[in-house]
């Protein structure tokens, strides 16, 4: 890692988004520092995924904006977010079902490679080398998330846990500096969650900052360095887990007033 730990990586400034009369996000401001695991929690419908979608360019915020690595993120350009170094997974897994696991990860290399149509048609040495590098990197990543023996299987035939892992491998293939995981433990049993936790800690150790949306409070509190709580689209608190856990407003938001 070239940049120092602890400096600001992503800064959200008063991000607002509404769908018709529903205010999904009300001026949410928060900062994510380099090297940390940052948790974003809140009850269903609190606006967590909307925040994700604004940040990764799938939605255009109605107000406010994001600074990433010191420069603003362009709204409405999801492919640029990936290019800048923001990768994400989806709450409802979105893999390329009819492609193999290996191909899914290879597609993830798209944004860091550059072979074009002409190179592909002429099969130039540069293209062939790049292709070999893409394949090797994808195989390495499948090893990293420990699903290398499913490399040649179609993504949609993988088990649920493996699909989650494949999605993370695909996101890592884009060489993100910020990896955003949208409820990665949803639907997992205790053993799978434990394995996922190891994987996330490994990714953090290897230098990638992680933004984690999660319902599993135990996982979030055990894993995250700092946690933000959203409720009705507004930020309730942003602090270390120990403080957040004891906050009266958080308890109310989760248990009902």
């Amino acid at each position: 890692m070239s940049k120092a730990m602890g400096e600001v990586l992503l800064e959200a400034n008063a991000v607002a988004k509404h769908f018709g009369g529903v205010k999904a996000l009300r001026d949410v401001s928060l900062t994510i520092r380099r090297g940390e695991v940052y948790g974003l929690i809140g009850p269903n419908g609190a606006g967590k995924t909307t925040f994700f979608n604004c940040m990764t360019g799938l939605y255009v915020p109605d107000g406010g904006g994001f600074m990433f690595n010191g420069t603003p993120l362009v709204a409405d350009a999801p492919h640029q977010a990936a290019e800048r170094g923001i990768a994400r997974t989806f709450q409802n897994i979105r893999l390329f079902g009819n492609m193999t696991a290996l191909e899914n990860v290879m597609v993830g290399r798209h944004v860091r490679t550059k072979a074009g149509v002409v190179g592909a048609m002429l099969h130039t040495p540069a293209t062939r080398n790049e292709e070999a590098a893409i394949r090797q990197r994808a195989i390495d990543l499948l090893h990293y998330v420990r699903i290398e023996d499913r490399a040649e299987d179609l993504a949609k035939n993988l088990s649920y846990g493996d699909q989650r892992r494949l999605e993370i491998a695909r996101a890592l293939a884009t060489e993100p500096s910020l990896l955003c995981l949208d409820e990665p433990a949803a639907g997992m049993n205790a053993t799978e969650t434990e394995a996922l936790r190891d994987l996330i800690e490994g990714i953090r150790r290897d230098g990638t900052t992680i933004l984690l949306i999660e319902h599993d409070v135990k996982l979030v509190m055990g894993l995250c360095d700092r946690v933000a709580v959203l409720d009705y689209g507004a930020l309730v608190i942003e602090d270390v887990p120990a403080v957040v856990q004891k906050d009266q407003r958080v308890i109310e938001a989760y248990l009902g007033a």
Partner: peptide, 28 residues
Amino acid sequence: RLQNSRIGRAWQAIREDEIAAKAIGINT
């Protein structure tokens, strides 16, 4: 050759899931 190239894979990704393709940086 196109089918098994970077471009061909990106096309297939768009075919499979356009939103996911955008999210990993493909200029759809």
